[in-house]
Design a protein around this nucleic acid. Structure first.
Lengths: 128, 128, 128, 128
DNA sequence: GTGGTCTAGACCACG
DNA sequence: GTGGTCTAGACCACT
């Protein structure tokens, strides 16, 4: 069963978009694999403290993208075809990193400063 | 006159929040200074391809924060009191870096991979 | 359900201010009471031929004043605490009458003419 | 020269509409007559504390309606053709009184209460 | 279905 | 020309 540990709905982006992103990141990380079972809509909505409709909308998106399949009954499963993971990785990872670099360059941060900053945050994050 | 070169409205966050962020980053970088003239609502809205109202809302936020001054019928100007820049820097820079480090960790990227990735993107960015 | 029978949007004042006035007058008249259900934003907007947003803004004003309560996803209801009605009455009735007496005096209408005029209109109104 | 004694810009209606109304009420009252000179745009704007453009817009409205004429030079004069006054009176006075009566009836005020209220306000107004 | 928010367009008042 | 406000339409999250 896929875990939503660490998911927070605080971002300014719509929740129904944040859920697919969270799952895709798990796929990239390898913690979410083909065949994994997703929490039911009701379970997840309770877990995240959001409305079941919102979860439904998110699952629908993933389904349309072919990333999950909903068998008869209500259970949903990850469906990751060959190469899908790499595809997602290219789509997401670089995009995130690029946006970070772009923003920080815009702030006048030098490459050295950025790397120092990341090291610092990384350390801190480990202690949480 | 403040330049909005490099601003793109692609993020899922509301545009009226992205504009203040862009400006704050310029302040941090030192490319936007106290007394600088802001583009008019219409000019900027045309530039970004959004509605004048959206820009108005963004400027209003900055005004409420005391970062810009604007009088009806007259242009708007940056207003950065002593120490304001540092304040913004602390507020923004870490926040941006943190959120992205968090995401990337979630994707299972190691510190080394991340730094490598950043180096790569940085190089590429230089050639654009 | 509160009725908006007789409401017309013809005045030069903003609609989002006229709606609260209309409701307050109903409260004064006693036709709108504590606990009464308000028409939904969409229903009322369709009824008045205005945008749902305009109604939203009007309801927001009333909510800020503590006259209605509304929870997302649920209906909105009047909330009239003890003495609130008298408060509104004092605020509104005299204000309305005063502004109109002022205008009519400005038109050089004598007290007798005004009373005659009112009698006349009153009669006519009864036959409508 | 027409006096703007008693004019206040506090109403929610646009100022450029309030000015013509004020003048029309003076015409009805008989205090403003054919041939009377209007204050210049600049004078009036200073007097009312509004922008010259706004006064210009108001005068333009009156001109389009044929109520004022602007001779060469900048002076403007009232131009009230035969029967014009009655026309305005019918347009304005009843409309104002009607709206008053309508509102008060909506508040559940009886005819007797209304007349009593008017007497009261009238008295008070005399002492101001 | 409900309320709430974001973006859009037109208009008002000001310099 | 400038900033500010009112109305409009579409979308999001919730019952």
């Amino acid at each position: 069963m896929i875990s939503f540990e660490g998911f927070v709905v605080e971002d300014n982006a719509p929740i129904y978009l944040q859920i697919p992103l969270f799952i895709k990141r798990g796929v990239i990380a390898g913690t979410i694999c083909d065949g994994d079972e997703l929490p039911s809509r009701r379970t997840l909505s309770a877990l995240l403290g959001v409305n079941p409709n919102t979860v439904q909308k998110a699952y629908k998106l993933l389904e349309d993208e072919g990333l999950i399949v909903s068998h008869s009954g209500s259970k949903s499963y990850m469906h990751l075809r060959q190469g899908k993971r790499e595809e997602i990785k290219n789509e997401l990872l670089k995009q995130d990193a690029e946006s970070l670099v772009l923003r920080l360059k815009q702030m006048g941060v030098s490459r050295e400063q950025l790397i120092f900053l990341i090291e610092e945050i990384w350390q801190r994050g480990d202690n949480i």
